[in-house]
């Protein structure tokens, strides 16, 4: 039996991203994904972001956050290439009723398009808003972490295309190491805001695609505290049962104490 490969994933250093979107295009090319409205898109007016979000035909998405003071004394343009986080505890996988979503031997999360029936539960479950229906296949789709390429021993298309190594691919162990060094370096150079998002087990057991950020997660459109959907399962179920019991009791009481004036039984 072949040895289980190590968990693989991405470390994305947003401080060196130049927003070139090569990753977005490389992903589309490799996965042959269609374009918004056949390429006849309209200007969003939201900085240089015209694809707006991750969805079934955008498995990578580059975010542009303009931060300028009115006098322009201070200004930043935060650029970040977003993708499925390949959560170790994956919300999408947890709720999927068809088992279309699986965990691969690389510890990545993949939706099997031939199994998915489009119930869309995973869409509402993913805390990062990663999944959407691809109108061509009619199924839920997202980044596969290039499962096909990984199986062939190749690097994912997006990280390979990234000219600045903002997206780095490798074993999680190795990436966490590299990322921590970069954070230390940035801090030493005076960038005290640098930190890693999702690099340890605390967030959903660890994100296999984690980030180096220099502002609060929500600035990048990331949840500060993503949770598993099942957190509500127990309480929700018990409370529903309680509701049922209450209703049942009301019914029993109502039907036991009924007043006089029985009518005719004539169906």
């Amino acid at each position: 039996m072949a040895a289980q490969p190590e968990p693989m994933g991405f470390y994305t250093d947003t401080t060196v991203c130049i927003g070139c979107k090569a990753c977005e295009v490389a992903c589309k090319e490799w996965n042959q994904l269609p374009s918004t409205n056949g390429g006849k898109n309209t200007l969003s007016g939201d900085s240089y972001d015209n694809t707006r979000a991750l969805d079934g035909i955008h498995w990578r998405h580059v975010k542009f956050v303009e931060q300028f003071t009115d006098d322009r004394k201070d200004g930043r343009w935060l650029l970040m290439s977003d993708v499925c986080k390949h959560c170790v505890h994956a919300a999408c996988l947890e709720v999927c009723p068809t088992n279309a979503i699986i965990r691969t031997e690389f510890d990545t999360v993949v939706i099997q398009s031939d199994t998915c029936n489009g119930c869309r539960d995973c869409i509402s479950a993913c805390p990062f808003g990663v999944i959407e229906i691809n109108p061509v296949s009619g199924t839920a789709q997202k980044c596969t972490l290039c499962y096909d390429r990984l199986q062939a021993g190749k690097e994912p298309a997006c990280s390979q295309a990234c000219p600045t190594q903002s997206i780095q691919f490798g074993t999680i162990r190795d990436l966490r190491d590299r990322a921590q060094k970069r954070v230390d370096q940035l801090k030493q150079m005076g960038e005290q805001r640098a930190y890693l998002y999702g690099a340890d087990d605390k967030m959903l057991g660890g994100l296999n695609s984690f980030y180096l950020l220099v502002d609060k997660p929500e600035v990048y459109g990331l949840p500060p505290d993503p949770q598993m959907p099942s957190r509500n399962l127990k309480a929700g179920s018990w409370l529903s049962a309680l509701g049922a019991i209450a209703v049942g009791l009301m019914g029993v009481i109502s039907f036991r104490n009924r007043g006089a004036g029985a009518g005719e039984d004539r169906p």
Binding site: D121, P229, N232, L233, G236
Partner: peptide, 28 residues
Amino acid sequence: AGYTGVLLAVTNRPIWSDTPLLGMLFVV
């Protein structure tokens, strides 16, 4: 009658998953 409320709660959408009471509400 009630699982649909729990289903909504077992997601990560705002409102739905911000309360465990939807199942109870739906049952009632």
